[in-house]
Design a protein around this nucleic acid. Structure first.
Lengths: 239, 239
DNA sequence: GAAAATAATTGATCCAGATCAAAGAAATTG
DNA sequence: CAATTTCTTTGATCTGGATCAATTATTTTC
C-alpha cells in the first residue's frame, strides 16, 4: 500500500466552482489522497466513512464480487467522477476500487456537519444531483449490457471514455486506455479473446488507430451509430 | 388514460413509520394516485416535478428507449419500491413507467419545503439512503447481466421478485408474475422463446410450479445457488 | 539486461441462445 | 360467444461469442 494523504485547500482549487466539496467551504471537509497504480482506494467489507471521493487525476476500476465467482468489473471511474456514492447508508463497502494508474482523489465529507447547515441547500442539491445522476449512469450501463452485440458494447465504452475526457477538458479523439484488455472484457461481459478480435475488427474498419493502449478515434460518428444511446443528442438526454 | 388523484392522509397511513413521505409530516407533501393497468405514470420527455413515487400496491415496468431500437425494460418496480429517483436533477424524465396492473402510488414532494427544514435530518438521510440504495440495486442488475448465463439471470429475477414480496409482508414462495414473458425477456436481455424454454426447464427440475402467471417456488435454495449474489447472506451485503 | 511472469493476439472448434417458422392458448372485442 | 388479436410454447436451424490451445509481445523482477 502506498497511499499518501494531505490537507487540501479547496479555496484555491481550480475546481472550486463546480466541486461539491469546495461548496462545503469547510476546512475539514476535504483531503487530498494520492494513490499508486494497482493500489486499493477501498475494498468490499471496509468500513464506510462519511466521505465520498472525487477523482482529480488518474482512473480506477470498480469491482463487485459475486460469491462463487471471480469479481467482475462493474465500472471504470475517471476524473472528474465520484466514488463511494453507493454506500452512503451502509456500514461496509460492497465494492472494491483499485487505481489503474497513479491517481489523486479528493475525499469529501458529506455528513451532517458539512452538509446540513441551513445555509447549504445548493450543496445538498448537488449531492442529490450526483446520486441521481449516478443512478442514470448505471441504468445506461445496464441498457448497454442488454444489447447482446459485443460490438455495440465496445463502441459504447469507447465513447463514454471519450466523453469523460471531454468533460475534464481534454480532446475527445486521442487518449490512453488506462485499463487492460482483460479489464475491458470483464466490464463488457465478454472474453478477452473477444475484445482482442473486436479491436482488430474496428481497426480494420478504420474506426480508430490503436497501438498498445494509445487510441485515436477516427470516426466518432460511426461509433455513435453503433452504440446504443446512439445519437450524441440522445446521449445527453440520457444523462 | 385513467389516472385518479386524491389527497393522502399520511398521519393515518399504515406505512407511516417507515415511509419518507410520512416523515415529512407535511399535508401537501403526499398525494395518492391510482393508475390503471397499462397506463403510464410518466413518460420519457415528461417534465419532472419535485416528486418521487412510492408504490403502495401493484407493479410497474420501467422502460428506457435507445434511439434506433425498441425500448427495453430496465427494471420492474413492486410495492414498496420508489420511482423517479433517477430524475431529481433533471428537467425531463429519461424513462417511461407503465403500470403492469391496477396500482396505487404515493407521490412525495422532496423539494426544499418538505425536506429542508433543519428539523428533518432523518428524512434527508432517508432520501440519501434511498438514492444510494438504488445505485447499488442498479449495480447488482448490471452484474446479473454480465453473467452471460440466461439461467442465472432468470433465477436472479425470480428471487428479487420474491424478496420484494417478503419486504412487503407477503410469503416468499407463492405469487403472481405481474409481467408478460415478453417483458421478462426484455428485462433479462434474451428472447421470449428463451424465457419460455427456461421456464420449462426450471419446472422440469422442480424449482417451481407455474401455471400461467401464478408461480410457487419449490426450491428457493437451489435458485439462490444458481443466482449470482448466491448465498442469501451475500445478497444482504449487496444491498 | 536476461529470465520469468504476465498480457495480448490468433486459430480451431463448440455451444447457448438467436432467429425463423408455425401451432396452440388466452385475452379482447364487437 | 364467435372472431380477432395477442401471448406463449415448441421445433429446426444458424451464429456470435465461448472455450481450448498455442504463439507472440510486453512487463517485471532480480
Amino acid at each position: 500500500m502506498n497511499i499518501s494523504i494531505e490537507r487540501n485547500n479547496c479555496a484555491e482549487c481550480e475546481h472550486r466552482m463546480t466541486c461539491v466539496g469546495a461548496a462545503a467551504g469547510n476546512r475539514d471537509a476535504s483531503q487530498r489522497i494520492r494513490i499508486a497504480r494497482h493500489d486499493t482506494l477501498y475494498q468490499a467489507g471496509d468500513a464506510v466513512s462519511d466521505h465520498i471521493f472525487n477523482i482529480r487525476s488518474g482512473s480506477f476500476k470498480v469491482l463487485r464480487a459475486a460469491s462463487q465467482q471471480p469479481a467482475q468489473i462493474i465500472g471504470f471511474a475517471l476524473a472528474p467522477d465520484f466514488l463511494g456514492l453507493d454506500a452512503l447508508d451502509r456500514e461496509r463497502h460492497a465494492n472494491t476500487v483499485i487505481a489503474l494508474e497513479d491517481s489523486e482523489v479528493c475525499s469529501i465529507n458529506w455528513n451532517r456537519h458539512a452538509f446540513e447547515g441551513r445555509r447549504r441547500p445548493v450543496m445538498r442539491a448537488s449531492l442529490h444531483a450526483l446520486l441521481s445522476r449516478e443512478i442514470r449512469r448505471e441504468q445506461r450501463a445496464a441498457l448497454m449490457l442488454r444489447n447482446t452485440q459485443a460490438e455495440q458494447r465496445m463502441a459504447d465504452l469507447l465513447l463514454s471514455l471519450s466523453q469523460r475526457r471531454v468533460e475534464f477538458g481534454h480532446v475527445a479523439e486521442q487518449f490512453r486506455l488506462p485499463m487492460s484488455r482483460c479489464d475491458i472484457a470483464s466490464y463488457l461481459g465478454v472474453t478477452a479473446e473477444c475484445v482482442s478480435r473486436l479491436l482488430l475488427l474496428f481497426r480494420q474498419r478504420a474506426l480508430f488507430e490503436l497501438r498498445r493502449r494509445d487510441i485515436k478515434l477516427l470516426d466518432l460518428s460511426a461509433l455513435h451509430r453503433m452504440a446504443i444511446g446512439s445519437a450524441p443528442e440522445s446521449a445527453m438526454v440520457a444523462s
